[in-house]
Amino acid sequence: MPADEAFVLTPIDVRKIRQYVQHKYEAMPQDKRAEIVADAVSRIIQKQLPPFEDRLKREVTARLIRTTVLERQMPVRSDDIFEACLGLDLADANVVTSLHKWVEEQSGTQLEWSLFRIQLDKLAKKAESGTADLWEQLKEWLASEYRIEGKSKAAPELAEVIPLPVQPSLIPALKPYRRKQTLVYSLLSIMLVGASLLYGWSLLRPSPNKLQPPVTLQSFEKAMPAVAGNELPDELRYTDVDKESLVDFLNSKDSLLAEQPYLDAIIDAARTFDIHPLFLFAITGQEQAFVPRSNKQAMKIANNPFNVFYSWKDYNTTIHDSARIASQTVLKWSKDRPEGKDPIAWINRKYAEDQNWANGVSKIFASMKSKVERTS
């Protein structure tokens, strides 16, 4: 089954699409660019939906954009897709058959249709009563009924052509085949590059089937300029970092956060909310010295190394939850920053009572950036 953090579409994805469209269609009116962005986003989501007819795909997509992306300002996940599909007419056998096929693909298991139908009806009734985490309940049922482990199915990405170096010691043995292989590799490279360009173009090419109503297309881009409510400067926005370098740095601090699930939970929160991952780690450095393994309470502190809701003692949750809350808090208190005011100092006024908090976080952040390499 898909992992909890396997996102179909994140606010970062929307931001990248928007930047691409603005650059590609710079001369185009703003409302037309907004249509292209919304259309591209809708078709990315539609590619991950069950094989419904187009009308139903548009209905589910519009619901996901309205509730998950705009209202909740969260990434679209397989969980959201499944729960949105529960709002369809499950008395329609075609709907259930398509959903049955999609769950089979997600789980990699052949599911008995009658048993699946019974379970689906139960979950649909729970959805009507407002029960949450229905996808988790389905996974638990699958695990008990079919004894399968969780499997992750990530959303498709644009293909990349990566040259593979040939070891010098192998060159003599390859000489008899060099001409033939050169021709074959050249053709394959051309095909891969062509496919990549065609796929990228197809995502962003305006489609005659746009979201309904049309007003949604124009309001969507305005509502999602990046991550809604994110007023952080560029230097505090998300960027990929080299995980190996980050782990090395954290290990040098004897940090429990170098281990899982803490490492990925913080990075995933940073990606989701468009915050520099090293900035979030710098906060843990200031708050809890990166949670040294030698601390007898390390396992508990690591659940909330940001000290959200006062401290890890008062609010001991999970690292996924505390990283999400810390990220939302950073975005909340970064708003309406006066011109010329240091962004971290501006966050300090509400995040921490200690007025030296900003100085400590800034120094740790700068130190981490100098030691943790950015991925290419």
Rank of each mutant, 00 (worst) to 15 (best):
S294A: 14
S245N: 11
S42Y: 03
L197H: 00
L9F: 02
R293I: 11
A154Q: 14
Y20E: 11
K180S: 08
W135C: 00
F82C: 00
L187S: 14
A40V: 02
S334D: 03
P213R: 08
D133P: 02
L250E: 02
L174Y: 12
V8T: 03
G130W: 09
W357Y: 15
D31I: 05
D121S: 13
G130C: 08
P51M: 04
Q119S: 04
M74R: 13
F273M: 11
L90G: 06
Q181N: 05
P75I: 15
V95I: 13
K47Y: 10
F273N: 11
L188I: 14
K243S: 11
L88Q: 14
I267W: 04
A352R: 11
A132N: 03
D240F: 00
R293S: 06
Q260S: 12
F290K: 02
K101M: 07
L280Q: 08
A40T: 02
A358S: 10
N304T: 08
V95T: 15
R374M: 07
A323N: 07
L120F: 06
A326N: 03
Q218M: 05
Q30K: 10
K153T: 13
L256C: 03
A326L: 04
K335Y: 04
K122V: 12
P168H: 03
V60I: 10
S129T: 08
L56R: 09
I267R: 04
E221W: 07
K296L: 09
E259P: 05
